[in-house]
Design a protein around this nucleic acid. Structure first.
Lengths: 362, 362
DNA sequence: TTGTAGGCGTTATCAT
DNA sequence: ATGATAACGCCTACAA
């Protein structure tokens, strides 16, 4: 919506008088524990029935007469009663919540659209079962220990794992625990966690071949962390396509690391005419470094990324990249987990297809 | 790190043989409930002591002889025992976790660095007390209802709230509940939730004056949601500086909305020579729209943003903007909440300072 | 259709 | 220093 001054008196008038900045103020707060916590017994007393009846109404209301149900619902409405999670969970063994645990800093967690896309997919699947998705970022060992404890203590019914190094001890610990978990990307062989992944190796090979087909003969690469399957496999795919690597620089999938790595590559292999970055974020960083070095993309140097996250179309030139269905990956992870929780059987892992997307950078 | 082919045989050799893509495989999984859940009694039996002793060891180990403690710790280590959260929480009334609840889609949640910076600040403060931060995004009413239930059911000890419209019914519901919560930004007057904020109005006024000082005489604005205090106040500040608005377009703080709004502004006020966007993300979107329209920034049109999030330095030209201390805001929110949980007293709200940062766009 | 009794796994209280 | 016992608030039986 847009309002020109002339055209939109209404909007302007509505705003008048409500836009003054207020100073901080504080009303009166009940404070935690000020009001005694409401229990089933309280609501039952108000409704004039037994706890059991209230419980029934809350959990579906079956086998309750319409009249008493109405009474009880009134009481619930009036008191704002919500069943205490811990008490309920203790007996039902369910929390109705699922954790999305990413082994990254809060900053990277909230900055890389890859996680957003996955979370969106997972969220939509979980919402169908009214499961609450809670996200956890854990970058340090202390963080990971805390998160691991959190999961194993039973705060959630299961976990979705992303951006973990393939043999992380906490991953192993989780696999040994009874917490159902599904990973994005493959763990080490010795760790039995079902996963959803793409064939990173062939996908990387294909996009590098695209670079070759476009005329590149000296293609360098910026890798992801080699402790993660995706990092290793994408490097392997690059090698499959180019044979002997011209130059290899290591990043951590982040934009900043991509920029640094590109600067290094330019120094060590100034004659390169193509770069495959193992993530769009790193490719975006590479673009900045190339611009600073006065290299035109794609004319002097062609650049390819990986992910097809929203970054790919936000940067100029827009990135040629490997599309992996991020939201679908999240959805499938959630799907496997929910099935697992329902059926009791650990699910089979899944491989999803990728495709090469040609845009401006190559 | 970078490895030229010649220089880094080691790295290459290390990789050889481990990079083959594996097909999906599944080991044997215990599955949920396959192994009987471990309890205090089990550990106690193994250690040959009472549950109480094990409990003591877990919770600090005071009043336990060194010998028995060692025995018990062995048993815990050996079994991988972790106390069941629900049972413990039922009696202690503590969960040792805090929710960061943002009223946005998963996508926006994970895409706007503003939230990342806040979360980082909050996380660092909470980590000091070993509190787990869990993040929740709720864009729809269904989502918000679920999140509200989650909070009121006692899954967490308290909540950090961000990006809520000032009079959201769920906000009100939360304020009426016994869940301690601290907001980023001011709620409606009638809603008593302590908050951490900046003076959006004077900050916006100052950055618009900067535009004026730079020579702009026809400054339009792209607002945030007017249902949020920050959106309202930043618009008010803009008006304070310019008097009669040239043109006003409305966005939702997101990049895409900024691009759309800028396109509208160009259509309705083609002679504008300055734009104040109420967020860096929208300013970034505006930059794209201006580029497409062939307007040079800052030569033809000067652009100012708000937040000084990482976006401000990622786009070209880099954004002149209002710096608000996002991480500090998160930290203070966490601080207030932790104090509240400890002291029982609802905290006083806090205003943090801002400053105008001049970069390339204005 | 409704109510009563018991137990989920832990910690707090009180003995010893 | 250690152990027995009673809550915590809810739900699953079973009984009425």
């Amino acid at each position: 919506m847009l309002h020109l001054r002339r055209k939109c008196r209404t909007a302007t008038r509505i705003l008048a008088g409500v836009t003054r900045s207020d100073r901080p103020h504080n009303g009166t707060f009940a404070g935690p524990g000020a009001r005694k916590a409401l229990t089933l017994a309280d609501v039952a007393a108000i409704a004039g029935v037994s706890q059991m009846t209230v419980s029934r109404v809350i959990n579906g209301g079956r086998d309750v007469s319409a009249a008493t149900r109405a009474t009880v619902e009134d009481a619930i409405e009036q008191t704002g009663y919500v069943a205490h999670h811990a008490a309920r969970s203790l007996v039902t063994r369910r929390t109705n919540s699922i954790a999305f645990v990413v082994s990254e800093t809060q900053d990277r967690f909230f900055h890389d659209p890859v996680f957003g896309a996955m979370a969106m997919g997972a969220h939509s699947r979980l919402a169908a079962d009214n499961l609450q998705l809670v996200s956890i970022a854990c970058a340090t060992d202390t963080d990971r220990r805390r998160a691991s404890q959190y999961l194993r203590a039973g705060h959630v019914d299961g976990a979705l794992l992303a951006s973990w190094r393939r043999d992380d001890p906490f991953l192993r610990q989780l696999a040994d625990s009874r917490v159902p978990a599904v990973m994005a990307g493959r763990p080490a062989r010795s760790i039995s966690i079902p996963y959803v992944d793409v064939n990173n190796r062939t996908a990387a090979r294909d996009v590098v071949r695209q670079l070759i087909d476009a005329g590149c003969s000296r293609i360098a690469t910026i890798t992801g962390p080699l402790e993660m399957s995706s990092g290793r496999d994408r490097l392997a795919g690059y090698k499959d396509a180019v044979g002997e690597p011209i130059a290899v620089a290591h990043g951590d999938f982040s934009r900043g690391s991509g920029q640094r790595a590109m600067a290094e590559l330019l120094e060590c292999a100034p004659d390169l005419d193509g770069v495959f970055a193992a993530s769009d974020a790193m490719a975006a960083g590479a673009l900045v470094a190339l611009e600073r070095a006065g290299r035109a993309v794609p004319d002097d140097v062609r650049v390819a990324g990986f992910d097809d996250s929203s970054i790919a179309t936000e940067v100029r030139p827009m990135l040629t990249t490997v599309r992996q269905p991020l939201a679908e990956i999240g959805r499938r992870m959630a799907d496997l987990l929910v099935d697992w929780l329902g059926g009791g059987e650990p699910p089979k892992s899944v491989l999803l297809p990728t495709s090469v997307i040609r845009r401006e950078s190559a």
